[in-house]
Design a protein around this nucleic acid. Structure first.
Lengths: 109, 109
DNA sequence: TACAAATACCTTGTATCGCAAGGTACTATT
DNA sequence: AATAGTACCTTGCGATACAAGGTATTTGTA
């Protein structure tokens, strides 16, 4: 794929990244490395410089909470979980996602 | 929906806007007002300040071409069409869109 | 005691993009 | 010639992914 398509791909991925992260944390508590690993397996690789500011942002919005946990090796880990508000927002995102899919289907029919 | 969700909605919509526009122009030649009208009907309203730079960008990338046409009332209209490259890019976008849907489904299963 | 390696969290600077707001220009009507 | 309607375009701003680089903790080894 050429650079134009790469750009589009990046724009599209950008839009759903927060949705992906809330979806991951809806299933289980996780710290940054785990989230990066899950995203990579789902074909949505991100780097640390993307993820950390995003987690901090979502925490500041009240969507996430975290607790520290000792690591068996190295510095402690910051485990994130969804708050009630985070779960409510995730349900809103499900709706938004369905709406956008409807929009695409309308325009392509 | 609260402001957090509104923000997410905007980010998600942002990612698919170019895809929507190429999809519209794949079906028929159109000028700005028509495109805005089609997007509004598909629940993806945008304003002029968003659309014009985007059309210019896509034209500069070689995805779109245009021709002038006299209006029955007022200044002439700029009718856009997809180029061959635009059609090829649209097919790439179809693939990217399907991949992103797969990603979401993977993370939510 | 040092030093290196591994792990983990965070920050800075850059480029892109939607949008609000405002501007320019053409045509028809009064 | 003045106004209204239509159409195209630009400027400034805020949000955000990413590349690159920084800080801090722990463990192993000389």
């Amino acid at each position: 794929m050429d650079s134009v398509t790469e750009n589009i791909r990046q724009q599209m991925r950008k839009g759903v990244l927060e949705y992906c992260i809330l979806s991951i944390l809806d299933r289980k508590e996780a710290y940054a490395s785990t989230i990066i690993e899950e995203l990579k397996m789902a074909n949505m690789a991100v780097v640390e410089g993307t993820l950390y500011p995003l987690l901090i942002r979502e925490k500041n919005q009240g969507l996430l909470a975290y607790r520290w946990e000792e690591s068996p090796q190295g510095p402690p880990r910051k485990f994130y979980t969804l708050t009630d508000k985070g779960r409510a927002t995730l349900m809103d995102m499900d709706i938004v996602w369905r709406e956008i899919n409807d929009t695409i289907n309308t325009l392509k029919k």
